[in-house]
C-alpha cells in the first residue's frame, strides 16, 4: 500500500492485517455456514466473492461480531470477534444490501443520528454529517426527507451513514445494487477514493465481478464455507505463459493460419479476438503479428498481454 506521509512523499508501509480469522467454524443447527475457515484480510480494499449460500454473509456477520462461532477464533483490528462485538462495531461501518434508513428524518438528521449511535458527541455528529453528505454527493438534498429519495440517493445515504463516524473498516454489501450506469460509476469512484490513501479499509461483497475489479486490490473467494482462493487481483488474473490477445477488425482465417505456419499457437477466436502463445517478447511478437496481418489483409485493432477476467478466475475456483 502506498501512503502519502506528512512530507508528501510516497512511501510503502508494510501491510497491516485488518482482520484475521483462524480455523473458524460456524454452525446453525445442522447447517455448517463456515467450515474451518482461515483467512487474513490486509489493509486496502478487499473483494469478497462466493456464490449464493457460500458463507459470505456469515463471514461478514462474523467480522461484525454477531456470530458465536462453534470453534475457532478471529480478531478484527485486534479485537476478539467472540467477546468484543460492540468495540468492533464502533470501528466498522456497514452499508447493508437492503434499503434501510431511519424513518421520519432528513438526510442530515439521519446521518448525524447514525453518528451519535456510533458514539459521536451530538455537535461533532452534526458537523460531520454535513461533511460526509457533501462527500457522498448528497449536499444539495441533505435537508430532504430520506423517504423521498431515489434508489441512487438511498444507496449513497447508506454509505454516508456508514462513514459518518470515521470507521477504520467499511463493509459494503452489494453497494451498486439497483443503480443505473452513471450511479454505479459514481458509487464505485466514491468507494475507490475512500479506500485508497484515506486510511479506510474496505471489504466489498458483490456478485458483480467487474465492480470488484474496479475498486478492489485483492479478493478472497469463499465456497461452501471454506476459503478457496485469496490474492491480489493482478496475480490471480495472470495467465501461464503470458499469451497475447490480438483483436482484428474482422475475423480472418488467413491471419491465424499464417501465424500458425510461423510456429505460434493460436487458440480458436472469440469473436474477432485471437489468443496467441509464443516465446517472443511482446514487441517482437507484435512485429510478427503485424506482418502477418499485412500479408493476410487483416487489420490489428488491439494487442495486449492476455489476462483472465475475474469471472474466469471465479468460475475456475468454483469448479476446481
Amino acid at each position: 500500500m502506498a501512503h502519502e506521509n506528512s512530507s508528501g512523499v510516497l512511501s510503502y508501509a508494510r501491510l497491516v492485517t485488518v482482520a484475521r480469522i483462524s480455523n473458524l467454524t460456524v454452525r446453525y443447527g445442522n447447517f455448517t455456514a463456515l467450515d474451518d475457515l482461515s483467512c487474513e484480510i490486509p489493509e486496502g480494499c478487499t473483494g469478497l466473492l462466493g456464490p449464493n449460500g457460500a458463507g459470505k454473509t456469515t463471514l461478514l456477520k462474523t467480522i461484525l461480531g454477531f456470530v458465536n462461532p462453534t470453534s475457532g477464533e478471529g480478531t478484527v483490528m485486534g479485537k476478539d470477534i467472540r467477546t468484543d462485538g460492540m468495540a468492533i462495531r464502533q470501528l466498522i461501518g456497514l452499508m447493508p444490501e437492503q434499503d434501510c434508513h431511519i424513518p421520519g428524518m432528513t438526510a442530515v438528521g439521519f446521518v448525524s443520528y447514525a453518528g451519535e449511535l456510533s458514539g459521536m458527541p451530538p455537535a461533532d455528529a452534526l458537523r460531520r454529517a454535513h461533511e460526509v453528505l457533501e462527500y457522498c454527493g448528497l449536499g444539495e438534498a441533505r435537508y430532504r426527507n430520506v423517504e423521498t429519495y431515489s434508489t441512487g440517493m438511498k444507496q449513497r445515504i447508506k454509505l454516508a451513514q456508514a462513514l459518518v463516524h470515521g470507521p477504520k473498516l467499511l463493509l459494503l454489501d452489494e453497494p451498486t445494487n439497483g443503480l443505473d450506469p452513471r450511479g454505479r460509476e459514481e458509487m464505485l469512484d466514491l468507494v475507490r477514493s475512500v479506500s485508497h490513501g484515506r486510511g479506510v479499509n474496505v471489504i466489498v461483497s458483490s456478485h458483480l465481478l467487474p465492480d470488484i475489479e474496479r475498486v478492489c486490490d485483492r479478493v478472497i473467494v469463499v465456497i461452501k464455507g471454506k476459503l478457496r482462493t485469496a490474492g491480489t487481483i493482478k496475480d490471480l488474473k495472470k495467465l501461464a505463459g503470458q499469451p497475447a490477445d490480438v483483436e482484428l477488425r474482422e475475423p480472418s482465417l488467413a491471419f491465424s493460419n499464417l501465424l500458425m505456419d510461423k510456429g505460434l499457437t493460436v487458440a480458436p477466436p472469440k469473436g474477432n479476438v485471437y489468443r496467441v502463445q509464443s516465446e517472443l517478447p511482446p514487441e517482437e511478437l507484435l512485429r510478427v503479428v503485424q506482418r502477418a496481418a499485412i500479408e493476410s489483409g487483416a487489420q490489428v485493432r488491439g494487442f495486449e498481454t492476455a489476462v483472465r477476467t475475474l469471472e474466469e478466475v471465479f468460475l475456475e475456483a468454483l469448479t476446481s
Binding site: 461484525l64 460492540m86 468495540a87 462495531r89 464502533q90 466498522i92 461501518g93 456497514l94 447493508p96 437492503q98 434499503d99 434501510c100 434508513h101 431511519i102 424513518p103 421520519g104 447514525a114 449511535l117 456510533s118 458514539g119 423517504e147 451513514q161 456508514a162
Partner: peptide, 17 residues
C-alpha cells in the same frame, strides 16, 4: 416504522444492541 424502513440494520450495525 423502523420495521418498514429496515432501520434495524442501521441500529444494530452500530455499537448498540
Amino acid at each position: 416504522n423502523d420495521n418498514r424502513a429496515n432501520a434495524m440494520l442501521v441500529y444494530l450495525s452500530k455499537p448498540c444492541d
